[in-house]
Design a binder for these strands. Structure first.
Lengths: 167, 167
DNA sequence: AAATGGCGTTAACCTAGATTAATAAATCTA
DNA sequence: TAGATTTATTAATCTAGGTTAACGCCATTT
């Protein structure tokens, strides 16, 4: 396990790297995102202090990751590196309590995210985001929140205008 | 743990029940879905043989579930029931290898789903679905696939027409 | 076999959010 | 601190997919 400082804007991972990374954020704030065929960024998740980032699907399927990971703030992180073909632990005693807890939280988060993307309007997604991650809201630019919500910065700007006049 | 037969169309869970359920599918096919404020159904996941269904977020947050679960085919299932306030296991030795494996697969699946919902067009979502779940495609009505993809049955029908003529 | 109800398809119209573009404010950099 | 770059906002226009509605096809029930 490697401890590292990353400056704002610095990359920790790029797609197609030959090693998988599991990144634990000690201080600061990172983001994990993909770039689609049209060159558009889509933020998969933010990771503030205490969160862990990794491409579970890539590790599970022994594929290369499609995600970029970079720092939104100067951060301190711990990195565990594994070969692309290295298998996920197969039995219980290869796991730690901490890993299990992280997995449970991750499933709950992803589940809520899918429900939101499936059934909420852009406005409701935004409301839920600020209710769920009030601290993140003030630490990242609007356009990244828009990207996380699956809408354009322009649409988010419009929504915020409406939201304020409607009260 | 309770073993049960459920007939096609029969409910296994409805929202707001006072017990959480973890459902393992032995044979057959179930679906887990929610109904939004406009009365529209959104399918969260399908569960054929070997899959496990549960509302992780509700269990993690000790809340009541928002999901319906019912049988698409006559099925045989195993149900584990827990009180709504009953805590998720806290330490490793309360887990089984099987549970851990299920969690890993679930994260990978959900991650792929979020990426798809964030960055794919309706057509690409459909293509990815039939590539990933070829067997499910022929076991569920189109309208349910549409619901899973986050589009209307009419939109899916149109897409399928295009897809065929474009070759 | 008629009636009922679910399902898939097609088509006309509509709307939430995307796209494009222009501007101003904030932030970075030399 | 001047210039360059990024960000947020507003507005005009466009479009993927939603909505509504009608029709035909199977199944199931009577």
């Amino acid at each position: 396990m490697e401890i590292k400082k990353v400056a704002k804007g610095e990359f920790v991972q790029k797609p197609d790297e030959l090693k998988h990374k599991i990144i634990h954020v000690v201080t600061g704030l990172l983001r994990m995102y993909l770039v689609d065929d049209d060159g558009k960024e889509h933020i998969y998740m933010f990771a503030p202090e205490g969160w862990t980032l990794s491409d579970f699907a890539a590790i599970a399927e022994s594929k290369k990751s499609i995600f970029y990971i970079d720092a939104i703030e100067n951060s301190q992180i711990e990195i565990i590196t594994k070969g692309v073909d290295e298998k996920i632990p197969r039995t219980l005693d290869e796991y730690t309590d901490q890993t299990i807890e992280m997995m449970g939280r991750r499933i709950a988060t992803l589940q809520n995210r899918v429900v939101m993307l499936l059934s909420f309007s852009a406005l409701d997604r935004y409301k839920q985001f600020i209710a769920t991650y009030p601290d993140i809201v003030n630490r990242v630019p609007q356009r990244m929140i828009a990207s996380y919500l699956g809408i354009t910065p322009q649409a988010l700007s419009k929504i915020r205008g409406q939201k304020n006049t409607k009260r």
